[in-house]
Design a protein around this nucleic acid. Structure first.
Length: 930
DNA sequence: GACATCACG
DNA sequence: GACGTACGTGATGTCC
């Protein structure tokens, strides 16, 4: 290459951002041999490898460098000694890893640059300017807003996390001005993270407004007298020096005295002779294997590896794996022998659909060690050979389903053979329909949930990509999509084998990866008491289903349809034209443009907001929004409940079978899908009637047991609030007690309104209270809401301490914990900006909501044994409620036993200072039982 | 497929 | 002092 110039493309990676991201995104990891923390280094290497691997295309960079900060004192500190003064100290675990990330960059043979006394941003600015002036392109890999001033003229940014490019338009979207005026806006708005003062009372929005009006900062300051708002005018006049200082702080230096040139940054291939030893030194086993594979060299042998649960010393790559197709009893028996020899097997089923209540078994995959897997096709259809009667034969070369199941059943039910699956509830339910009761089990999805809850999803694709660096064969090309989609039994066996067997292979490798980590992360008990044992319990509940009366729903649907039609006519009449009432966009235009109602607020997409709270405010003055609210309620009830629910009634059982996701919610709660039976209406009279359609079989009753105020009780325990504990012990009305404390109203004189306020505050505390949130909820001025909160903290001082401690814990560890040891990761807690506030509130809430979720999980796990022998079935869980179907004469027995289990569910693992109490109800339908 | 809305705890 | 805010979910309809 003859020097940097036109046609060249320079990539500049913000090294510090990479390190911090790697550090916070990953669980702590130490080097086995000496305990040196290396998690961030590993994450950093992962990102570099991904970066290198992703940049092979025609748009590949010709030049690249990773830029680091160096030294804590920069010229900005000379300008302003408070610059970055409120930044928190670097975490202890991260400090020793910083020099290692530099070594890593060099090991990857990527230029690694820094300059004493200068921030990485200034070096990036200098290089970007040089490259631009030479006529080349530049991509800055960072999402730091301070770098946005450099965008334009061939310079772009790339947010590697979101894989989003930020160009001139992106900058305007963020700052309201073009890149050349970004520093002016920043000078006015300041930056709390870097402690740039700016002008008090002016944020980005206002700053952009002013700059756009006056052209640039200098003109604005010179002509500050012309500003109409008196306060703003005075601020700009008084604060001129501070604003000008701020500008010098945010302005990047394009002239740093670097001692190298663009030509030194030419992209070079990594040298395996250097890279491999470095990875070996770090003891990155799987990463070095992966990179060795990518470079086509031998992976280094890293001594002192922890013994994997597999006896396979070197797992073959997925590409090299050769999967078997099992077509007869003899071959299957050979596999079964291998399984018995080892004592475990990864299992995966292929079926005709996602609904386990309906789907039929098509084939089974087994894997006994990494790379050694098979697929047993069972009911694949022959190709396009259907005859006139639509009868289709089975494809050739499959063993009879019954024969295969007869051979496998003893193994699948053998207590000495562990069956490993990814989302085993699905497979267990399928097998159950064929008379096979799979046990014991391990579930890689649940292992990941216990280990990484809150960090990422736990689907197989995610886990495989993250932990095995392998993208599973996608199912789409096999099945097609849309109308022409086929079911798995129509996939040719030859195509099915690699796909299906690979799933079992991946599952086994994930198990080998995760299982040893359980102990290290101290979540073995969580997995073994709260996750794994729930699988058979939920499988049984889902198979039980709940009887839903179609006629009741159908009648309600008709009534709703009539009511909607009437309301719609009224609404059109009021609007003076017909429009789609269900379209928030059209409704907004009618209300705020056509009718000219004041106070329409536009959301981020530019459409008017027309949510309930907006319409409720308008409804006091206008009829139309009031009618729309009515229409919406009816429309919701009809479409989501009376209509959709009917389609979920299983024709064979006459019941509705929901599916619970165990690893969906980050806090440990379950989530119900297809249909969601955890959000059946109850708060309004009209909605509650939907529950009349959920009925018991003749001779039975529905029995509902729910925890009373479980989250507040847990809060009282965790935060140690004597007043709350005492109130619960005495069985007082907790919201009334709170109100009495806070507003100095004796309990006898309590009014509903005062109690309502206290209730909102109690909930607010659980949610990580803020003045703004409470103000909005209660529709009171923010200052008043803040006053309530201050008073609450004064009266219940333990709350404040709990919040502070929880926040500190999250910041230090990257996760928070429930009383039972469940970890909920909060990777964003150390982010900057509003994301951190989100993470903060979620971190406050997670231990409370999560502990409540753990409690009911424990109750559910114990429930089958507790009601054994009684004519009762557990049907549904709704977070703090369990619903049973019970023969009439056994109702009292079941209530007594279930209540005992639920009230004692925390014991013996945790002794709560506050007792848990359970309310019970019964009736012919769910409305009566609740 | 994103977004707005609304049902639940 | 200003960001943009209540926590956790799933399903539906509109609109591009």
């Amino acid at each position: 290459m003859s020097g940097f110039g036109k046609g060249c493309h320079l990539h500049l990676i913000d090294g510090s951002a990479f390190i911090f991201r790697a550090f916070h995104a990953l669980p702590p990891l130490t080097r086995k041999s000496d305990g040196l923390p290396v998690g961030a280094v590993q994450g950093f290497c992962n990102m570099l490898h991904k970066y290198v691997a992703d940049n092979a295309g025609p748009d590949a960079p010709t030049h690249a460098a990773v830029i680091f900060d160096k030294g804590s004192h920069t010229f900005r500190n000379d300008l302003y000694d408070e610059y970055k003064a409120n930044r928190e100290a670097m975490p202890e675990d991260l400090r020793p890893q910083i020099p290692l990330t530099r070594k890593a960059t060099e090991a990857f043979n990527i230029a690694c640059k820094e300059l004493e006394g200068y921030e990485a941003d200034d070096i990036i600015a200098t290089l970007a300017c040089q490259a631009r002036d030479a006529g080349g392109r530049v991509t800055i890999i960072s999402s730091d807003k301070d770098l946005m001033q450099l965008v334009g003229d061939g310079v772009e940014m790339l947010d590697a996390m979101k894989n989003r490019r930020i160009d001139r338009e992106g900058v305007i979207e963020k700052f309201g001005v073009g890149p050349e005026r970004v520093v002016d806006v920043q000078a006015l708005a300041g930056d709390s993270v870097d402690n740039v003062p700016g002008a008090p009372g002016i944020g980005i929005k206002t700053a952009a407004l002013l700059i756009n009006e006056f052209g640039d900062l200098e003109s604005l300051l010179d002509r500050a007298e012309e500003i109409k708002q008196p306060k703003r005018r005075q601020t700009l006049i008084d604060m001129r020096d501070q604003i000008e200082l701020s500008k010098r702080l945010v302005q990047l230096d394009c002239d740093t005295p670097i001692d190298f040139g663009l030509d030194d940054l030419e992209v070079r291939d990594p040298d395996p002779e250097v890279l491999m030893p470095f990875l070996a030194e770090m003891e990155f086993r799987s990463l070095s294997k992966r990179i060795a594979e990518h470079l086509g060299v031998e992976a280094p042998i890293i001594a002192d590896a922890p013994p994997p649960p597999s006896d396979a010393p070197d797992a073959p790559s997925f590409e090299a794996a050769d999967y078997a197709c099992v077509r007869d009893a003899e071959a299957l028996e050979a596999w079964i022998a291998q399984i018995r020899e080892r004592g475990w097997v990864a299992v995966d089923t292929e079926t005709t659909g996602l609904n386990e209540m309906v789907a039929d078994l098509v084939g089974i995959s087994l894997c006994v060690e990494a790379g050694t897997a098979c697929y047993i096709p069972l009911t694949h259809k022959a190709g396009a050979t259907d005859d006139l009667f639509g009868e289709e034969g089975l494809a050739e070369g499959q063993m009879p389903l019954e024969e295969a199941l007869a051979l496998l059943k003893p193994v699948l039910e053998d207590p000495a053979v562990l069956k490993i699956g990814q989302n085993m509830k699905y497979d267990a339910k399928i097998f159950a329909r064929y008379g096979v009761d799979v046990a014991p089990i391990d579930d890689t999805m649940l292992l990941s949930y216990a280990l990484h809850g809150g960090l990422h999803g736990h689907g197989m694709d995610t886990l495989s990509e993250r932990y095995l660096a392998h993208s599973p064969i996608p199912i789409k090309p096999l099945l097609g999509s849309g109308k022409s989609a086929i079911t798995f039994d129509r996939v040719p066996i030859d195509d099915a084998v690699p796909y299906a067997a690979e799933d079992a292979d991946i599952t086994l490798r994930l198990w080998q990866t995760f299982k040893p980590l359980l102990h290290q992360s101290r979540v073995t008990t969580v997995y073994e008491t709260l996750e794994r044992p729930l699988v058979p319990v939920l499988a049984q509940m889902e198979r039980n289903g709940i009887k839903v009366d179609r006629d009741t729903l159908s009648r309600m649907s008709n009534a709703f349809a009539q009511k909607m039609a009437g309301l719609e006519a009224e609404i059109h009449e009021l609007a003076g034209e017909t429009f789609n009432v269900g379209s928030p966009k059209q409704l907004g235009e009618i209300l705020f443009d056509k009718m000219g109602i004041e106070g329409g607020k536009r959301g981020k997409t530019g459409a008017y907001a027309t949510g309930v709270d907006v319409l409720e405010d308008l409804a006091t003055e206008h009829d139309l929004p009031a009618r729309v609210l009515d229409w919406r309620q009816v429309s919701k009830l009809k479409s989501t409940y009376t209509d959709a629910l009917q389609t979920h009634i299983n024709p064979e059982t006459g019941r509705v079978h929901t599916s619970y996701s165990i690893a969906g919610a980050s806090t440990g709660r379950l989530a119900s899908t297809d249909p969601n039976l955890q959000n059946i209406p109850v708060r309004t009279e009209e909605g509650r009637r939907i529950r009349e359609a959920f009925v018991a079989e003749p001779g039975n009753l529905l029995v509902s047991l729910d925890y009373s105020q479980i989250e507040l009780r847990i809060l009282a325990h965790i935060a140690g609030i004597p007043a709350l504990k005492a109130a619960f012990a005495e069985g007082q009305d907790i919201h009334a007690m709170t109100a009495s404390e806070m507003f100095d109203v004796p309990m006898e004189e309590m009014t509903p309104d005062v109690r309502r306020k206290a209730k909102a505050i109690n909930f607010g505390v659980i949610y990580g209270i803020s003045g703004f949130g409470l103000a909005r909820n209660l529709r009171i001025p923010r200052a008043e809401a803040q006053g309530f909160i201050d008073r609450y903290f004064e009266r219940f001082p333990g709350i404040r301490a709990y919040m502070d401690e929880t926040k500190a814990f999250a910041k230090e560890h990257g996760y928070v914990q429930t009383l039972f040891g469940r970890r909920i990761h909060t990777p964003e807690i150390n982010a900057k900006g509003p994301r951190a506030s989100f993470a903060y509130r979620a971190a406050i809430n997670a231990p409370i909501q999560g502990t409540a979720a753990d409690v009911i999980r424990r109750a559910m796990v114990r429930m089958p044994a507790a009601i054994e022998g009684l004519p009762a079935k557990m049907l549904l869980q709704v977070h703090d409620e369990l619903l049973f179907e019970v023969a009439e004469d056994a109702v009292e027995d079941v209530i007594a036993r279930a209540r005992e289990v639920m009230e004692g569910a925390a014991d013996p693992a945790v002794h709560l200072d506050v007792k848990l109490t359970v309310d019970a109800g019964q009736g012919a339908n769910w409305a009566e039982a609740h």
